[in-house]
Amino acid sequence: MAFDWTVFWPQLVDGTIATFIMVLVSLVFSILIGFPLGVVLVVTRPGHILENRTLFTILNAIINIFRSVPFIILLVAIIPFTRLVTGSSIGTVAAIVPLIFYAAPYFGRLVENSLLEVDSGVIEAAKVMGATPWQIIWRFLLPEALSSLILAATIATIGLIGASAMAGAVGGGGLGDLAITYGYNQFEVRVVVITVLLLIILVQLVQSLGNYFAQTVRRK
């Protein structure tokens, strides 16, 4: 049976759009959750401006737990929750939920690292000026870490592109789904090559954009 390219091309377009949607939506939610998580992880650690050992220890443990579960298992493990939220456990929308569970703790860690890179002398200077903890975060820590935060978001985005391809394994749609359905199951190597090429281009694009913005911020 010859491969029907007239059917494939529209599916490739749909698949690309599905990947975009999955990555973008889960990225937005991962940032919304992961960003405050990272900030809290920094400021509640011992010796920091809002030291809170209990909160720090709990958050730290939760993040580690989520970070240690392989994505493919996470995908399956939270199906009941996904169904509760989206009403379904398969499809693009349903894939977004596990992607958020995967990327939010990851982004939280990246934010934590970025903020820890800020010189402690800057925080000392802020305290000396009589800055409130809130002001220290918004007016000192975040501006100083901005360039590094942009790179963190870039890394998280690329992580999500990779993970979204895996979500294809459970019928999440997107480029990964195409590669598995046609390439893996029907031995159509050309399809695998095309989808992987598309993914590579996507990743390159995201990384270049991230580098560009990080550099622009830094040069200021």
Binding site: E124, G130, P143, R218
Partner: peptide
């Protein structure tokens, strides 16, 4: 204390300026 600190300026060996500003 924050108010009081505003009346006690401080400068540092490593300057501690915001590099991004």
């Amino acid at each position: 204390l924050r108010k009081a600190r505003r009346k006690i300026g401080m400068i540092f060996q490593q300057f501690n300026l915001l590099e991004s500003k």
